[in-house]
């Protein structure tokens, strides 16, 4: 277990190094000059040169890169071009908003998708199965921000039940947090849930038709036990995979949803930083999202091993 975690951590460092290379080069290849953007109307050739050398942007790219990676290891992700704040602080400030939205969305997604998928699979070919399939296909195809806008129109503008946007930390005001998170979380969660529903349905269907499920029935076990102990349990490995991927995507910040709901999370931050060519913030955000992604996939691997004894994590 420990060795597995260490090996995975080593692996993760390599992946993250790769991520830094890609992000670093990409950001510098994209047209647009951050120094000009930062100076805005206060642009003069002198102030331009001063800011450029202060930010280290006049040095060769390769030396900029090594400097960046070196400090990143100590937790220093540089300073925002726009605001002058340390990137690490900016990211940590935005993280709770994104994580709490992702968490709420995942709860909604899993709580709807799991029973629906299992129900559809165990009622294959019936009308209820068809309804679940059509609705989930619809859910997969609908953009989450469009759902979000519909929600705002209905629940805020028309009915006036919920505040249309904004964010309150969960720790300060749980009720306020809930009333603001519910719309974006539902919009995102339903789309994720639709994807998960389809996976659950097909995984459970496959498991239902398996030979060991037939053995379980041949033993004369009650249907409920066959389904819970032999069918759904065996379908969990692919289901956990897709839930993990969805969770990781949500943690990366749902950019458009965060913009629509003025949700001060990582997605919103990335959006603003890209518009402003704020390299350090974009790089930091991508690095953080990649780290979260790796953490989730590591957790998924550990879960696999707990479910399936054939997967050993020695």
């Amino acid at each position: 277990m420990l060795r597995f975690s260490l090996a995975r951590a080593g692996h993760a460092v390599v992946v993250l190094l790769g991520v830094t290379v890609v992000v670093f080069t990409l950001m510098h290849l994209v047209p647009g000059d951050p120094v000009r953007v930062a100076l805005g109307t206060q642009y003069t050739p002198e102030s331009y040169e001063a800011l450029r050398s202060a930010s280290g942007l006049d040095r060769p790219l390769i030396s900029q890169y090594f400097h960046y990676v070196g400090s990143a290891f100590t937790g220093d992700l540089g300073v925002s071009f726009r605001t002058g704040e340390p990137v690490t602080l900016v990211l940590l400030e935005r993280l709770p908003a994104t994580l709490s939205l992702a968490f709420a969305a995942m709860v909604i997604a899993v709580v709807t998708a799991f029973p629906l998928g299992v129900y559809a699979a165990t009622h294959q070919g019936r009308i209820s199965d068809t309804i679940v399939r059509v609705v989930s296909q619809f859910g997969v195809s609908v953009p989450d921000f469009w759902l979000g806008i519909l929600f705002i129109l209905l629940f805020s503008s028309t009915l006036g039940w919920l505040p249309p946007s904004g964010y309150v930390p969960l720790t300060e005001d749980p009720v306020g947090w809930l009333s603001r998170v519910i719309m974006p979380a539902t919009a995102v969660g339903l789309v994720s849930g639709a994807i998960i529903t389809r996976f659950v349905r097909s995984a459970v269907l496959e498991s239902l038709g398996s030979e060991h499920a037939r053995t379980a029935r041949a033993k004369g076990l009650r249907r409920r036990i066959v389904r819970s102990r032999h069918v759904v349990r065996n379908a969990m490995v692919p289901i956990i995979t897709v839930i993990g991927v969805q969770a990781a995507i949500l943690m990366g910040g749902v950019i458009v949803i965060e913009v629509v709901f003025a949700w001060p999370g990582l997605g919103r931050l990335t959006f603003d930083a890209v518009s402003a060519r704020d390299y350090p913030v974009v790089q930091g955000a991508v690095l953080l999202v990649a780290t979260l992604f790796l953490l989730v996939s590591m957790a998924v691997d550990l879960l696999y091993a707990r479910i399936d004894p054939r997967i050993s994590i020695r």
Binding site: S210, R214, T215, G220, D308, P309
Partner: peptide, 20 residues
């Protein structure tokens, strides 16, 4: 089933539940 009728299937690799 299982009480008065016992079943043995062809492939013992796939007929047993790998997770139990």
């Amino acid at each position: 089933r299982g009480r008065r009728l016992g079943f043995v299937f062809q492939d013992p690799m796939t007929s047993l539940n790998p997770l139990l």
